[in-house]
Amino acid sequence: MADLLHFFGELVPYVPITLQVTGFSAAIGLVVALGAGMGMLAQVRLVRWCARAYVEFFRGTSALVQLFWAYFALPLFNVQLSPFTAAGVVLGLNVGAYGAEVVRGAVTALPAGQTEAALTLGLTSWQKWRFVILPQAALAMLPPAGNLLVELLKGTALVSLVAVTELTFRAHELQTATGNTAGVYTALLIIYFLLSYMITLAVRVGERRLGRFRSTARNSDVLVRSQV
């Protein structure tokens, strides 16, 4: 137990670095997922093809190989990325490909009447997405998006292979220095579990709040219609 507590103390200072990689990747993934998800539903065939090609490429190739290519192969083309940037961009693009399917599925699950109503009201394409489609699809997106965020957190362990000094990198250093494999990696497992569980709890809170917001909005809409 004393060894386990010691390893906790050695690993915890590296949690912020892991969270920084996760947050940076998640921000990129969110933007890319929304863009590619909407792109796959675009009316322009070329846009749909490009979005689908991106999604299939990043889902169909290994994240580890993508990371190695970005860090070791790009310099051959005179593009040098820092380990942190390479890791964040690659993981963000990777999770964004899976997130794009989440966006596409949530949007296509909406009743067709919602889009028709937006067109009837004369909303622009941007207004239709901003005020009609995305707010309603958000609740359906949240649970799978939370799962992707947990997977992204665990996937940050890969960045230790390009010399980003985060949790897994430090754990490997400790294991090499002490030889206590069981103690080091048990502490690492527990830390990853706690971080993942906190993300899960945050997503559940978001689901409840968004659900209450939608219920309130629906009740208000019914009340307004009854008074008209």
Rank of each mutant, 00 (worst) to 15 (best):
V159M: 07
A87G: 15
A63E: 00
T61A: 03
Q66Y: 10
T156S: 12
A140Q: 09
L93Y: 09
A140F: 04
L167E: 02
E116Q: 12
R130D: 03
T168C: 06
A106K: 06
P111A: 10
P144T: 09
T85N: 13
L123F: 13
A86K: 05
V102K: 01
L110V: 04
S160K: 06
Y98S: 03
L149R: 04
L81Q: 11
E166N: 11
V150N: 02
A106M: 03
L153R: 06
G96N: 08
A97G: 05
A117S: 13
T108I: 15
V162I: 15
Q136R: 06
A73K: 10
K154G: 05
A100E: 06
N78V: 04
V103E: 00
L76E: 11
G146V: 08
T61P: 10
L167S: 06
V132I: 14
A118F: 01
F131G: 08
V162W: 13
L123N: 05
A138C: 12
L123D: 01
L110D: 02
G105E: 05
R104L: 13
A87L: 06
L91R: 05
Q127A: 12
T165D: 05
V150I: 15
A163M: 11
V162Y: 08
A97S: 08
N94S: 12
V107R: 00
V89R: 12
L158C: 03
F68W: 05
P144M: 11
P144S: 08
V164I: 02
Y98D: 09
L139G: 00
V103G: 03
T108N: 10
S125D: 12
A138R: 11
V103I: 08
L142F: 10
E116G: 04
A112I: 15
V150F: 09
V102E: 02
A145G: 15
S82D: 12
V90G: 03
G146I: 13
S160A: 15
I133E: 04
G96E: 01
A157L: 05
L119Y: 12
S62D: 09
F84L: 14
P75G: 11
V150K: 07
T61E: 07
A112M: 14
R104Q: 14
V65H: 07
A117R: 03
P83M: 14
G92I: 05
E101P: 08
G122C: 06
S160W: 02
L167A: 08
P83T: 05
P83G: 11
V159K: 05
L158H: 03
A109W: 13
R130F: 01
T168A: 13
A118E: 04
V79M: 13
V89I: 15
A73C: 14
W126F: 14
G113Q: 13
L93E: 07
P75M: 12
P111N: 10
A73R: 12
G122R: 10
L91F: 08
S62H: 10
T124A: 07
Q80M: 14
N78P: 02
L153V: 11
L110R: 09
G105K: 10
A70R: 03
V90R: 11
E151I: 02
L119P: 00
T108G: 02
L121I: 02
W126K: 09
V164D: 00
